[in-house]
Structure formats: C-alpha cells, structure tokens
Nucleic acid binder design. Structure first.
Length: 267
DNA sequence: GTCGCAGTGTACCGTATACC
DNA sequence: GGTATACGGTACACTGCGAC
C-alpha cells in the first residue's frame, strides 16, 4: 500500500531557506512538479534530496500534491501553510493567495491536456528564473490565474518583467506569454488579437507578447495570422523547445519574418 | 504471468554547519 | 567537543502500467 498521498506527522524538521524558496516558486508558477523544483533549486531534476525536502513540505502542509497516476511525477501546489507563508512574505494578500493557489484535481475536474498546458508554462517560469539567476537579472512573474484576477480583458498565459540592468531602478522589460499547442480557429485568433489591441489602446502601453508554439509549421501559421494586425510588431513567435534560452537567445521571429528566417533576441 | 520501465519513499553514508 | 540537522549522493524496495 503506497502512502504517497498521505501526509505523515513530522517532528523536528527545520525548514531551510531553500525549502521556503520552493514554496515561493510554487506560488509564482501555481503548479510545479518535483523535477522542475529539483532543476530550479537543487541543481538536478532527479535530486533525491529535493524529493525528500518536498516530502517534508507536503507532510507539513506547505505544499499539497495533485492526484497523479502511479507513473506520473508528483505535481505540487500551495497548501494552507504555504499560502500563509506567501502572505506573510508580502507576496500577495490572503484572498489572492487563496484564489491563485492550485487545486487538488479531486473536486475540480482538470483535463490532462489542461494540466500539461499549465506545466509547460511552469517550465517557462523555471527557465526564466534560471536565465535571470545566471545573469544576475531580477524576474517578476505572474501566472495565468493571477492574471485572470486582474481582469485585463484578454487571457494571457503569463506575464513577466525582467530588470536586466545593474540598478534596481533600471526600467524593466515586460512581456505577456502565450503558449499555443492546438491551433485556434481564424475567428478565435482574430478575437485574441482584438482583445490584445483593446487592452493596449486602453492602457496606451503596447507590450511584447512572447508567443510559444510546438512546431515551425504552427509558428508560420501564427505569424501569418499576426501579419496584418495593427500591433504585429509586438508579437514574437518562438518554439517551446527553445525555451531554455528564450530571454537571451535570438530564437524569436516577428512581423518581418517573411523577409528573414533569422531570429531576434527579446531581452 | 513475466519483465522492463518510470516514479516515489526511504535507508544509509560521509561531510558540512549551527547550536549548546 | 557533542549533538542535531542539512546536504549530496547511492542504493534498494515498492507500486502500477504496458509490452510480450
């Protein structure tokens, strides 16, 4: 009988700074699996030590696990203590913490494809964190759920702000994040672009959209749909396979892509 | 039914660090 | 110095799925 999803009483566990960084990372991404946390904070995806520390955080209710099939990795979201911790750290208020925290998957049906989409975005968050850490940049990330609460008028998959300069007062570079696997219909695509346009005209602040997809063919379809848009130069289209360097490498194609197949960097 | 595989849990070891 | 715990790593047991 597996006790994988049964919290166990733990005494004398001292939480480390890294344990609490894991809690914060789960808050920012909403869902993270143990491999992603291992990669971000323990140097390797298959760290047994990461598994052990995550097990303690689970037992202490800082993190909870989604229901997962036996051969699928554990997927963590914030537990009660985790939500209290991020509020105490000033990352958000209590209501936001409760609304942004993930759900178990027992009461609320979350299709496998939707969870896969969420974890792909979590992977982008991890990649962004690692790239920023490597270069001494600072990163601010908002996940899908956090953006929903802001009622922007459109529904991006994520938002990030990066300060690349040495001074914290340097102007941040900001972008929305989109990830498309199944291509939307023309009408859906037009609606999405119109919502972005509406948002930018209300705020008078056009922002880059880093638009990931899964194949060159889909990237071409996206570029074609964007080509005649008023704000076509705001959209950068790239492949999810290149996400490990998406903040720095010239992986992006944009409105002038019909004239060049060479990518451009974002930051 | 057997086997291989993937994933988790845990024991164990040696080392480092903090605290008394 | 002794003790407790963290950390990084290895190893093994267990579970359930899929292929044969």
């Amino acid at each position: 009988m597996s006790h994988r999803f049964e919290p166990q009483a733990r005494q004398r566990i001292r939480l480390t700074a890294r344990d609490l960084q894991a809690v914060e990372a789960v808050y920012h991404a909403r869902y993270l699996n143990n491999r992603q946390i291992g990669r971000l904070l323990f140097g390797r995806e298959d760290s047994s030590h990461a598994r052990q520390r995550l097990r303690y955080l689970f037992d202490l209710d800082y993190l909870r696990k989604r229901v997962a099939a036996p051969n699928e990795p554990d997927i963590y979201y914030l537990g009660l203590k985790g939500r209290r911790y991020v509020v105490a750290q000033g990352l958000c208020d209590r209501e936001t913490a409760d609304k942004v925290a993930g759900v178990s998957g027992e009461q609320v049906a979350t299709p496998t494809l939707m969870m896969s989409h969420e974890l792909t975005l979590s992977g982008l968050y991890i990649s962004a964190r690692l790239q920023c850490r490597e270069r001494g940049w600072s990163l601010h990330w908002k996940n899908t759920r956090r953006l929903e609460l802001e009622s922007l008028g459109m529904q991006p998959d994520g938002w990030l702000s990066v300060v690349t300069g040495p001074s914290p007062d340097a102007p941040p570079r900001q972008a929305f994040v989109e990830f498309t696997d199944a291509m939307p219909s023309k009408a859906e695509m037009a609606g999405k672009l119109a919502r972005y346009q509406g948002h930018w005209e209300r705020t008078r602040l056009p922002t880059a959209v880093l638009w990931f997809t899964t194949s060159p063919r889909k990237a071409n379809l996206l570029l074609e749909a964007i080509r005649n848009d008023t704000y076509r130069d705001c959209y950068l289209v790239g492949l999810i396979d290149d996400n490990a360097s998406f903040l720095t490498a010239p992986i992006w194609r944009w409105g002038d892509a019909e004239r060049s197949n060479e990518g451009v960097p974002w930051a």
